[in-house]
Nucleic acid binder design. Structure first.
Lengths: 222, 222
DNA sequence: GAATCCCTCGTGGAAAACCACAAGGGATAG
DNA sequence: CTATCCCTTGTGGTTTTCCACGAGGGATTC
């Protein structure tokens, strides 16, 4: 079983609940951090002392306080941790339920488990810890659904840029000009029109307004 | 001091943390519910037994499980509770930080305190309990900022309907038709154009796309 | 090398949205 | 009662977006 667990969770109320539940169910040393930077620091220190963490349980969104932080999101945190200690196991424990985001964490960050906070988040988190300990990956029911959803469109960089400019109030002509100035292709007015039309089709949107509303709700242009 | 406190929070991890913190800091009976319906039930039972709750600490968003629930949001919950027991004190404890939403809770629901979950949510919640106990209202630093923000535009019902239809892909002609069919005025194509233009001005949006993106980000058309 | 496919891009016309001007009607103040 | 203001609506013309057709170019296949 894991012998050293680190929990990264910024909200103190949640932090308290998670730590007490995990401590009780696993008889291991549980440590905690409320900031991403602090999490990195603890992981580095533990390695330095020759007693590294086995498992990181991390949230995805972190509050910013008055201090300067170099790392501010769970995504960045996980990338950084993987660089420092590639073998560490990671379970994401978060309120984020958007399929596109959950998929990308398994695809791009090779996490070992994903549990959505909710009515039964804690028992699921315990299950996740057990499963990951035995070398499996774990997905809670909600995230399992998300992973099995078909037609979860992933957008490429070009499309995200295009949508963001639309959301920022750029006209098609202005987007064309912007793309030309920044050497992004295709950049003709006409091609941008086509790209937008394709996105409208993909997301079953009748208007560009609905398109932007939809991708925004899906969390694809944050 | 309060003698009977009820906490409504659906996420078990958070629930655990809040209950243990509140129990520890106040030496009172703390009860908890994970669903809105259950919360209403407990409040009714307590009244029936002649021993009602003094204080409700409630989240705003609640998960839906497989069961049918009649009440599904914190907003509805608070409205219902106020009907049953108008004198009960209410503190909202939530992750929601959007100024428009915070303002509307004080303006329309006469809550006694608002605390945003975060790094120091629990000590702030304790402060809120003390303040409300002494007959004051309490706002945490984040929500205090929100309440003091100028230019937080509140939309009326008509505007919200209009924006929602736009977000759903309706053309201006279709919106006009919809309004005519549903006896909503003004409903001429031309007036709808004007209303949209006014909203664009209010939110400094160059296009309708940007308008919908903006109000969506502000949480005004949920 | 020829056929095919896909992506980019231009053109022109239709549809939708935008905007300035102004008429009519209801509410209000004097 | 009248003048004024504001809201709604119509009209006509411009801008923006939409869309069907087709040309050119690069990559792949046979």
């Amino acid at each position: 079983m894991f012998t050293k667990i680190l929990i990264a969770e910024d909200e103190d109320s949640d932090n308290l609940g998670i730590v007490s539940a995990v401590s009780e169910f696993t008889n291991t040393s549980v440590d905690t951090a409320q900031f991403c930077d602090k999490t990195i620091l603890k992981i580095k220190e533990a390695i330095h002392k020759g007693n590294p963490y086995d498992l990181l349980i991390s949230d995805l969104s972190f509050a910013l306080d008055y201090k300067r932080h170099t790392i501010t999101t769970g995504k960045q945190l996980i990338e950084e941790v993987k660089k420092i200690q590639p073998a560490i196991k990671i379970i994401v424990f978060t309120g984020e339920k958007k399929p596109a985001i959950i998929k990308s964490f398994f695809a791009n960050h090779k996490i070992n488990g994903y549990v959505c906070k909710g009515l039964y988040g804690l028992p699921q988190l315990i299950n996740a810890i057990n499963a990951v300990d035995q070398g499996h990956t774990y997905t809670c029911p909600v995230s399992k659904d998300a992973l099995h959803q078909k037609n979860v469109l992933q957008l490429d960089t070009y499309e995200v840029q295009l949508l963001k400019l639309l959301a920022k109030g750029y006209k098609q002509d202005e987007i064309s000009q912007y793309f030309i100035e920044n050497d992004i292709t295709p950049n003709s007015r006409r091609s941008i029109e086509d790209k937008i039309r394709k996105l409208r089709d993909d997301f079953n949107a009748k208007t560009n307004i609905q398109l932007i509303y939809t991708v925004n709700q899906l969390g694809l242009i944050d």
